[in-house]
Design a protein around this nucleic acid. Structure first.
Lengths: 178, 178
DNA sequence: CGCCGCATGGACTACATGGTCCCGCTCGGC
DNA sequence: GCCGAGCGGGACCATGTAGTCCATGCGGCG
């Protein structure tokens, strides 16, 4: 679903990819909609798990740069294709399945929360100025990340993603204490 | 297609919306794929036309703020739903129709070009520092815009879009001459 | 005024795809 | 070792959708 898009993925594709049969599918999921929701939930859990590992110890600007580098490098492997696991689902499902949209919205909030928590640690340790707003900075970083993913996916080139994240990092940098 | 998504839009929907018949459809377009490509091209032309109007005279930071406000206000009308006319098409088609992807990529480049041209004018008139890179700033603005659209669409709330664009504008501001 | 040609509408077809169901196999209990 | 229950496999069905085709009516020309 990540590669082909949710709507272009048939249950036969799912069957083939999972080495199961239709009846097993319908044992676990009442219909395709529920299956998609499960996919969304699983993907969200997976991404958040990974990001938790990458961000729970974030406490310096260098850490943020490393975070950026890891995401860019990961995306470079496929030349930007398919975009962000959550972002591409969001783009396709937001106006189609309100429940999926809600799950994705929560996931983004949580993802931004991980960033915000790290930024707050930086603020508490005096790395970041007191007038910085960790939540807003986190939202800005997430938007730059998602926008970067989309432009990279469209251009088949990760440059725009790098530029976007660098812009967001520069913005954070402007709140560093001298 | 903008509202329901490309793949969820049937030719019957198209027929109904256009008050025509199947034969007329197939008179003009060999198949659905070509129809979609025509939609992409038309949408891109429309957005670029609008943005040309909004950006061709851009030559001050205030102008950039007005540009931001216009986009936010436009998106607020639908509570962020459906996202960017180009962005949502890009998200759905980028990994499905290479020709559509290419068209969209060109459109984004042109859109960024309009921004870059305005920024260059600001630079030439001394509003923007000489070491600013108009192309990179334009890409950053576009990424913030697209990321903002996506987060707003997912959250059904335009706040993230505002925050993202404000971040990008702040970044541009950091290149203003004192 | 009538006839011919062609665009048009919308019924029709083939097919893909979501969803159901029954047969057979396996595994557990007696 | 045999029997029965329950699970899994994949054939099957119904439906919606992309794409085709022919009867109809309208306009243009003689």
């Amino acid at each position: 679903m990540y590669v082909k898009g949710v709507n272009a993925t048939t249950l036969d594709d799912v069957r083939a990819a999972s080495n199961t049969s239709k009846s097993q599918l319908y044992n676990h999921f009442p219909d395709k909609e529920e299956l998609v929701r499960a996919v969304v939930a699983a993907r969200a859990a997976q991404v958040l798990e990974r990001e938790r590992g990458n961000l729970q110890r974030l406490k310096s600007f260098r850490g943020l740069v490393r975070w950026r580098d890891a995401l860019v490098q990961r995306n470079a492997l496929q030349n930007g294709a398919y975009g962000c696991a959550l972002g591409s689902l969001a783009g396709e499902l937001a106006d189609q399945d309100d429940q999926a949209r809600a799950t994705l919205a929560e996931s983004f909030v949580e993802w931004e929360g991980l960033l915000a928590a790290g930024l707050r640690r930086m603020q508490e340790s005096g790395v970041l100025k007191p007038d910085a707003d960790p939540e807003k900075l986190a939202t800005g970083l997430m938007a730059a990340l998602q926008g970067g993913y989309l432009l990279a996916e469209t251009a088949h080139d990760i440059k725009p993603m790098e530029i976007a994240l660098d812009m967001a990092l520069d913005h954070v940098k402007s709140f560093l204490t001298a």
